[in-house]
């Protein structure tokens, strides 16, 4: 099994490090040819406008969409979640639209408001320590999108920050920064289930 990590911009090396530590073959993906050779894909944290623009220029949008429609498991973290979703609440940018959700970018505020917190995650016994950096949240989600974790904002409202739709997993936070392997394990298990 090979897990590809989209390596246009962002913290792709951290994802590769965590997968390698788990004994999984991980490859940097920058072209449609490289994408064709993988069984699953990670879309890392980074700047979603930068990643989206480079993906457009280098013809990756169509190929990633077709692989997703054919059932390839995907994990998107932060910018990766924004890129997977169908729209953003605040402006136009290149997106894959394979996850039925509208995302609000920088939803918790600016870097000043970036934070760490312990999250209860559906299906995990122990809480997950999560790092949120200028993080997005899910503003609206489709009927088939399952919420696995939420965060309560300063006004007491709850917002989804970890969701799953079919074989697509998306998080607002960065499991790759804390060394927690459990979400990457979920991704690998989705490949094994095919």
């Amino acid at each position: 099994m090979i897990v590809g990590v989209l390596a246009l911009q962002g913290d792709f090396r951290e994802h590769i490090a965590i997968l390698s530590k788990m004994g999984v073959d991980a490859e940097e993906i920058r072209t449609p040819e490289e994408l064709a050779a993988v069984d699953a894909l990670v879309i890392p944290g980074g700047e979603s406008t930068t990643i989206g623009r480079l993906a457009e220029v280098y013809g990756l949008i169509g190929p990633i969409q077709s692989r997703c429609e054919a059932g390839m498991p995907v994990l998107g973290t932060c910018a990766g979640m924004i890129f997977l979703a169908s729209s953003t609440a605040d402006g136009d940018q290149a997106q894959l639209g394979v996850l039925d959700a509208c995302v609000r970018r920088n939803a918790f505020g600016r870097q000043f408001d970036s934070f760490e917190a312990d999250l209860e995650v559906v299906g995990l016994d122990e809480p997950m320590h999560a790092v949120f950096i200028r993080a997005p949240w899910m503003e609206k989600i489709g009927a088939d999108v399952e919420v696995l974790a939420s965060v309560i904002d300063t006004e007491g409202e709850s917002h989804p920050v970890l969701v799953r739709e079919g074989r697509i997993l998306a998080t607002s936070f960065h499991p790759e920064l804390t060394g927690d392997e459990r979400l990457h394990r979920m991704l690998v298990d989705l490949v094994d289930d095919i």
Binding site: D11, F12, E47, F112, S114, F115, E116, H129, L177, T178
Partner: peptide, 25 residues
Amino acid sequence: MAANEQLTGTEQVKRGLAEMLKGGV
């Protein structure tokens, strides 16, 4: 950490934003 507690301005959060800028201009 207590449930629902949010820590801002930590080393991890500060260094983390730089991690997200990697490979960029």
